[in-house]
Simulated scan of single mutants.
Amino acid sequence: MSFTGFPEAALDFYDDLEIDNSKVFWDAHRDVYRDSVAAPMNALVAELADEFGEAKVFRPYRDVRFSKDKTPYKTHQGAFIAVAPATGYYVQIGAPGVRVGAGFYHAEAERLAFLRRAIDDDLHGAELEKLVDGLRRRGWQIDGDRLKTAPRGWAKDHSRIELLRHRSLTAMRDYGFDEVIHSHDLVEKIRADWRQTRPLLDWFVQHGG
């Protein structure tokens, strides 16, 4: 199956799921999820695999074992292409439309220590700063889980303290309801955007231990 865009039915499906996140709703609309969400997502990442690698298309079910929120289904469909542990390219569709990103989404303590030592280094840290600033100028939202203060062992007035506070760091971009999400052109739009983030991922791979 070739990718021809996400149909309007995919957006409508998630609009309705946010209102009625129940097994009754899911069972009644399982074919909509299969045909309008899952199938296009699999086709999309298949067309990008030649350059970026094989994607993991996430299951639609939430893990509610340790959550107070017991709603059973995710309100978006995501796919992830890993280049290192918890590091890689991301795309999702949900009620707000399509979103893409790249970065490291989680780091174990040892790997985070490697990354922070690289951020501290005047050469490597300045390189990451330049990459992040360049993506911001291109319209990317730099996000991630951050400590409220300096990590243990690092000075609060460190010149790159904002980067050192990150426990994850991502560059994200929203396409929203842009008409491109309903066409094959979305493949090339994502391809171009992921290429912009490749130097950032390369930095994480190089300095992550």
Rank of each mutant, 00 (worst) to 15 (best):
R65A: 08
V100I: 15
W26N: 14
R116S: 11
G209V: 02
K56Y: 04
K68S: 14
G208T: 15
D202M: 02
S159P: 09
D202R: 03
A9P: 05
R167K: 15
F114W: 06
E110Q: 13
L163K: 03
D193E: 12
G153S: 10
Q141S: 04
R65Y: 12
H166P: 04
D122P: 02
R191W: 01
P7T: 03
G97Y: 13
D202N: 10
P199R: 00
D16M: 09
S2I: 10
V64D: 09
D145R: 08
L128I: 02
H29K: 14
G125V: 03
D185N: 07
R195G: 02
D50R: 13
W26C: 02
A43P: 07
A86C: 12
A38H: 14
F66V: 01
R137K: 15
P72H: 05
R111A: 10
Q206F: 01
I81F: 05
I190Q: 04
L169A: 02
F3R: 08
D178L: 13
D185G: 07
E179R: 13
V83I: 14
S2M: 11
D121H: 10
W194C: 07
D185C: 04
G101Q: 01
R136E: 08
R117W: 03
P60H: 05
H106L: 14
D16L: 11
L201S: 03
V83P: 05
R99T: 01
I119R: 12
D50K: 15
V187Q: 08
A107C: 08
A107R: 04
D69R: 14
F58I: 04
A82N: 08
L200W: 06
A150W: 01
A28M: 11
E8F: 06
L200Q: 02
P40A: 01
D202V: 02
T149P: 01
L131T: 01
R173H: 13
R165E: 05
L201Q: 08
A155V: 00
R173P: 06
A113E: 13
E108N: 01
L200S: 03
A95H: 10
S183Q: 11
Y105L: 06
S22M: 14
A9N: 10
A43N: 09
P85Y: 07
E8M: 06
L123E: 11
Y61I: 03
K130Q: 08
